[in-house]
Design a protein around this nucleic acid. Structure first.
Length: 204
DNA sequence: ACCTGGATCTTCT
DNA sequence: GAAGATCCAGGTA
């Protein structure tokens, strides 16, 4: 149900180094409460994008538009369109003035499975939120949600969740120009991740 | 003004 | 595994 799952993550949670937030964000729960229904899912996969030194990051390439939120206060949603079609949901990290964001890549659906199925047009629970575009569609997140304060909004928010047994890292997905870095974090063995690529397990 | 290149997903084979 | 769908910011002119 909406509101369940523990306290809402606050700004201090996100105001830390991006890759540190990435690990602690796994297991947390994203909720949306929209006119056509409520839905939530446990975060099982994220990717870190850093400042201008990270050539795959929008912060290195773009100066105007929505990407400016990557430099702004943490805990804000940075939503952009990819490949002309899909919405991508990022959460801004780092203290205000430092660029950083985490791309939410996959969720384990928890509630609102039926409304997710309607929005996605697929039945298989494993395919509802397995991918950044898919999870936005399943949660009903659109470009209009860009700039939402996730620590305040009643429409999209994130709560602390269950612990993750084991975290794995691998290279980010779909990076072609920049030198790849192992900044993709996912729950080891989860059937809900977007790409079933083997990673390296992190020490607990 | 035009061109290019994507932090993707689906539907084929 | 390969290709098509489809849009926008930035660079070039």
């Amino acid at each position: 149900m909406a509101g369940d799952g523990g306290p809402r993550l606050d700004r201090a949670f996100f105001a830390r180094p991006t890759l540190e937030v990435a690990r602690s964000l796994l297991g947390c729960v994203v909720h949306t409460q929209l006119s056509d229904g409520e839905a939530s899912g446990r975060i099982v996969e994220v990717e870190g994008y850093l400042d201008a030194s990270d050539l795959a990051s929008h912060a290195a390439r773009l100066k105007r538009g929505g990407v400016r939120s990557m430099f702004g206060p943490p805990g804000i949603a940075y939503v952009y369109r990819s490949m002309g079609i899909h919405a991508m949901l990022n959460v801004v990290t780092e203290a205000e003035g430092r660029a950083g964001a985490l791309l939410l890549r996959a969720l384990e659906p928890l509630s609102g499975i039926d409304v997710m199925r309607l929005r996605r047009g697929v039945d298989d629970v494993r395919l509802l939120c397995a991918g950044p575009g898919r999870l936005c569609q399943a949660l009903g997140i659109t470009l209009g949600d860009h700039g939402t304060d996730l620590t305040e909004s009643g429409r999209i928010w994130i709560t602390a969740g269950s612990c993750v047994d084991s975290v794995s890292v691998s290279g980010r997905i779909g990076i072609s120009r920049a030198v790849e870095e192992s900044w993709r974090f996912f729950e080891t063995g989860s059937p809900f991740v977007s790409v079933h690529r083997r990673g390296m397990a992190l020490p607990p």
